[in-house]
Amino acid sequence: EDYYQILGVPRNASQKEIKKAYYQLAKKYHPDTNKDDPKAKEKFSQLAEAYEVLSDEVKRKQYDA
């Protein structure tokens, strides 16, 4: 799945936009606030993985290549 789609940001998003999108979605899908939703944990880990790659310039360049 596309990391940009997961975070809901365009491919040319700035680091600030990526961070903002991640924090909004992380708050929304955090397992502690969605105890009754088994998919929230999965969504949250996808968000974390996408953010880890896109927030790191080197990893992001490799991902975009």
Rank of each mutant, 00 (worst) to 15 (best):
L54E: 00
G8K: 07
K27C: 12
E42I: 15
A21R: 08
L25C: 05
N34G: 08
D36A: 14
E17M: 13
R11N: 07
I18N: 00
L47P: 00
P31G: 08
A48T: 14
K19H: 15
K39D: 14
E49C: 07
A21N: 05
A21L: 04
K28D: 10
D2R: 03
K43Q: 08
K35A: 13
E17H: 08
Y51W: 09
K39R: 14
Q15W: 05
K20N: 15
E49Y: 06
Y51I: 04
N12I: 06
K20W: 15
L47C: 06
A13F: 02
K28C: 10
Y23F: 12
V9M: 04
D32S: 12
K27F: 08
E17C: 09
Y63A: 03
K41T: 09
H30Q: 11
Y22D: 00
Y63M: 03
Q62C: 09
E57I: 10
P38H: 08
K59R: 13
P31I: 05
K20C: 11
Y29Q: 05
D37L: 05
D2C: 07
Q46H: 08
K20L: 15
K35Y: 10
A21Y: 03
E42A: 12
K35N: 13
E49F: 06
K61C: 09
A48D: 06
R60V: 01
Y51R: 02
Q5F: 11
K20H: 15
P38W: 08
Y23A: 15
A40G: 07
L54Y: 00
G8W: 03
A50N: 00
Y22M: 04
Y51L: 04
L25V: 04
A65G: 10
F44I: 07
F44C: 06
F44P: 02
R11V: 07
A65K: 12
N12F: 07
Y4H: 01
Y63D: 03
Q24M: 15
D37E: 05
T33K: 12
Y22L: 02
K43Y: 11
N12W: 08
K39Y: 13
G8H: 10
S55C: 05
K61L: 05
V53D: 01
V9C: 05
H30G: 11
Q24A: 13
L25M: 10
Q5G: 06
Y29T: 04
K59C: 05
T33C: 10
K19P: 01
Q15P: 13
L25H: 05
K16M: 15
E49R: 11
E42Y: 10
E52N: 10
P10K: 13
